[in-house]
Simulated assay, not measured.
Amino acid sequence: MKKLLPALALFASLIPLAGHTAGYLATKPQALPDLVFGIDEAGYQVSQPRYELETGKSYSLKIVSSGRKEYAVRAPEFFTFIWLRKVEAGGMEIKASALYELEFEEEGEAEIFFVPIKPGTYSISAAGLEHKGAEAQIKVK
């Protein structure tokens, strides 16, 4: 019985930790500045040319179309190296394991919730419009 008491005391001390979210990376995401495509009159420039993120931290990023052009927003390497929690768009939550493209045919927005998992420098851009300025860089440390 004397040997059992220390084990019971240890077990009892762990009970308050049940349901504790320590280690859950997606809680309380840090909201990044919105990435707006088409902030200039021509419809090509982005509002935020650069982001700096850290692996293992939770973020949310609102991607916004000004409606000046059609934007097929792609970030193939970045989308490959994030854990995607969800996408919110059009009044709904989309639970998916990966993203390929966010296509905006008119004004609108989509917010992605994610955790970066691999360091590197990535591009997020409107397909075919990168050379005109519709591109931002994401650096993950």
Rank of each mutant, 00 (worst) to 15 (best):
M1K: 08
M1N: 13
M1H: 12
P6S: 07
A7I: 12
L10D: 00
F11P: 00
I15F: 05
I15E: 00
A18R: 01
H20W: 15
T21K: 11
T21I: 07
Y24V: 12
K28A: 13
A31C: 02
L32T: 05
D34F: 09
L35G: 07
L35V: 11
F37L: 13
F37D: 03
I39Y: 03
S47E: 01
R50L: 12
Y51L: 11
Y51T: 07
E54C: 05
E54D: 11
K57Q: 14
S60N: 09
S65Y: 05
S66E: 06
Y71G: 02
A72C: 06
A72H: 14
V73Y: 08
R74V: 09
P76H: 08
T80V: 01
V87L: 14
A89D: 02
A89R: 10
G90H: 03
G91I: 10
A96D: 09
A98H: 06
A98S: 15
E101I: 04
E101D: 07
E109S: 12
E109Q: 09
E111I: 13
F113I: 03
F114D: 02
T121E: 15
S125A: 10
S125L: 07
A126P: 04
A127H: 10
E130W: 04
G133Y: 09
V140F: 04
V140L: 06
K141I: 06
